[in-house]
């Protein structure tokens, strides 16, 4: 671990970007794939997918714990980084927060690069 004097700051450390949204309807697990940085989600079949529509959505505390367990295992296996459980809207895998929606789709200013149609 980096100690105080060798600490190097990366954006994610000084942003409260993963605040929870209380109105959310479910949880999904996400991160960026280590080798290429691509945004990935834990899928229902236990694999990792780049398609948010395939994400495994959980609505219970046990389900959320399972998502965290999968993230933890993938992080320890050096498969993904910046792991997080994020909120979704009710009854869909659409992320609740705009930030996560943009992560799922791509930059809103480059529709030509979009991974899926915007919601």
């Amino acid at each position: 671990m980096a100690d105080e004097n060798t600490q190097v700051i990366e954006p994610s450390e000084i942003s409260a970007h993963r605040r929870s949204n209380k109105a959310a309807g479910g949880k999904i697990a996400t991160g960026n794939r280590l080798r290429d940085g691509v945004v990935i989600y834990l899928a229902a079949n236990g694999e990792w997918t780049t398609d948010v529509d395939q994400a495994r959505r959980e609505t219970t505390a046990d389900g959320e714990a399972a998502l965290k367990g999968a993230l933890d295992a993938a992080f320890k296996a050096n498969y993904l980084i910046d792991a997080a459980v994020i909120d979704t809207v009710p009854s869909d895998t659409k992320p609740a927060r705009l930030r996560e929606q943009i992560r799922a789709v791509g930059p809103t200013v480059r529709p030509d690069l979009a991974r899926r149609a915007n919601w």
Binding site: M1, A2, T6, Q7, V8, E10, P11, S12, N32, L34, D36, G37, V38, V39, F75, N78, I81, D82, R99, I102, R103, G106, P107
Partner: peptide
């Protein structure tokens, strides 16, 4: 990752939203 992140940052490599 904890060991590597400072090394990649020293070379200008960040992790952003998409990649």
């Amino acid at each position: 990752e904890d060991q590597f992140r400072p090394l990649r940052l020293m070379n200008g490599l960040y992790l952003q939203l998409h990649a």
